[in-house]
């Protein structure tokens, strides 16, 4: 029975991510002299995780579907600049600014999606192009329209309460948005037909299309979701901090990909889980922000992230092989006859 439980847990896609989180916290406690209660209660890493997590989920979904979106790096400042220019600089109603920010996400997502399904160019290259292009558009539009690269925004109280509030003085309300997003995404991906289509699509697009799964439509919607999520994060930032800058956001590209990969999503698609992405994001945030609570010099954090990424991917690989060959009834016999195909 013991073997059964361990096997069932280890063959889940999130096993590696959960283990990484435990290892990182342990490492900080053992070698960093960190006060664990103090660190886990701090808002800084939770805020960081929430902002990153909202982008990481759609990036992870795209990766499961076999695509990649790095234009999120430009969509975060694009979202915050759009709302600040519309509602701050031109003093239009805040709803117009919000619609503008999210609408821009829809447009860019649509462009990414249409280009990806209509051409055979890899989505990495397409979104790289839109990333760079959007950076240019945001910067020139900002300078052209406002003459500045930083625009103030005074959002009304009710929008602040929903999108830019600090709960208990330090916890950003976006944490709740993130948790809600995780729950919805988990329900859809793991407990609906759509979720099954997503995995099928990432596993083998041709075989998914034959039984009638609308793979092109799904890809376009996923790109829209990811661009809108990114501009949502930017929009919330602008509402919270009362201003927007054209720079920033580029870190999110790698941070999101690291979170997703640590979370057990296969870079080539077809495998992964929302809980895994959730743990991957938490792990990344703990390393990135938790290091301030340790005696370890801040400069080492990138090294830790690099090592952690490598370890997590190696762990995920072996767990995936375990999952392939694992049969809870008679594991010894199965392990001998099966040949774990390379993933």
């Amino acid at each position: 029975m013991y073997n059964f439980v361990v096997g069932t847990i280890l063959r889940r896609p999130e096993a590696g991510a959960a283990l990484s989180l435990i290892l990182v916290v342990l490492f900080f406690v053992l070698f960093g002299g960190v006060d664990i209660a103090n660190m886990l209660g701090a808002a800084s890493w939770v805020n960081f995780a929430a902002n990153l997590g909202i982008v990481a989920i759609p990036v992870g979904l795209l990766m499961i579907a076999g695509e990649l979106d790095i234009s999120i790096g430009a969509m975060i400042p694009a979202g915050s600049m759009t709302i600040s220019i519309l509602s701050g600089h031109y003093e239009l109603p805040i709803l117009v600014g919000m619609a503008g920010a999210l609408g821009l996400g829809v447009i860019v997502g649509l462009i990414n999606g249409l280009l990806t399904v209509r051409t055979s160019v890899p989505s990495l290259i397409i979104t790289l192009a839109t990333l760079v292009a959007m950076q240019g558009i945001v910067l020139s539009a900002s300078v052209l329209l406002t003459g500045k690269a930083s625009v103030p925004l005074a959002a009304p109280e009710w929008t602040k309460a929903i999108f830019g509030q600090l709960i208990g003085g330090s916890y950003q309300i976006i944490i709740l948005w993130w948790l809600a997003f995780v729950v919805v995404a988990w329900a859809v991906v793991h407990h609906s037909r759509f979720g099954n289509w997503l995995f099928a699509m990432g596993g083998d697009k041709e075989s998914a299309r034959n039984p009638g799964i609308p793979t092109t439509k799904m890809a376009i919607w996923l790109f829209i979701l990811s661009a809108v999520s990114a501009s949502f994060v930017g929009m919330c930032g602008a509402i919270l901090f009362n201003s927007a800058q054209v720079s920033g956001g580029m870190n999110y590209i790698f941070n999101a990909i690291v979170s997703v990969v640590v979370g057990g999503v296969l870079l080539t698609g077809g495998f992964g889980s929302i809980i895994g992405i959730f743990f991957g994001t938490l792990t990344f945030a703990v390393v990135n922000q938790g290091i301030y609570f340790t005696d370890i010099d801040r400069n080492w954090s990138s090294l830790i992230i690099g090592v952690m990424l490598l370890l997590a991917v190696l762990m995920n690989n072996s767990f995936r092989n375990l999952a392939m060959t694992y049969s809870p009834r008679k594991p010894a016999v199965k392990a001998a006859v099966t040949n774990p195909s390379k993933a």
């Binding site: 099954n196 995995f199 099928a200 596993g203 083998d204 041709e206 075989s207 296969l266 077809g270 495998f271 995936r320 392939m324 195909s341 993933a343």
Partner: peptide, 10 residues
């Protein structure tokens, strides 16, 4: 053709 999906799902 979906090596990483479960029997039931695929």
């Amino acid at each position: 053709t979906f090596p990483l999906m479960t029997i039931g799902r695929s």
